[in-house]
Amino acid sequence: MMKRISITAALLSMTACSTAPLNIDRAELADARAAIADAKAAGAEKCAPKLQAEAVASLYWAAHELSETDYHPEENQQLTEDALNKAKAAKKQAKINCAPKPAPKPAPVKQEIIELKGVQFEYNSATLTRTSTAILDAAVETLVKRPDIRVEVAAHTDSTGSADYNQQLSERRAASVMAYLQEHGIDASRLTSKGYGESQPIADNSTEEGRAKNRRVELRVLK
């Protein structure tokens, strides 16, 4: 008799201490299961790993709670809803995080500029100095060698004087250089002129050296 009681007690204690394997295939978990599978297909394990893990853990926990004999419907429903909602959130987050990034904008093509270093004008005038013509002759040669390009003759001033005056002066100087190029054989269809006044300084206008750099003419290649 004692032996039977011992065996029964041992079996009972083993049963009490063992746990049933988690059954996540229960009907109550169908929606959560589907949502988790959906999120996984959307890349949630890679792109929203924390949310997806929370969803899966909630599913396992709900599966356990549903298997218990002391049934807590509210707690079970809460865990099931947690799994469902986390999976939905994981899918949404995965779509954002895994969305292909837009192709980077191509780097702006740096405009080719043919500098006309040393081109100078009479003071407050658009008349070219003698020394400038040699430089412009070299520019003519360049343009002859490159018949496929069009250029904008761009003239700049320093900031001495009013902006309006400098604008007009730069326009006259640009037109003067363009006229020289035309007179020396460059077709007018390949040339435009524009004055930028004092709007695009490349050096400090508070020093004489800076102002000299800012007073300049350049050819901007338009292709």
Binding site: K46, Q52, A53, E54
Partner: peptide
Amino acid sequence: YHAHLARQ
């Protein structure tokens, strides 16, 4: 994902 699930 597996690390997060392990913690959960």
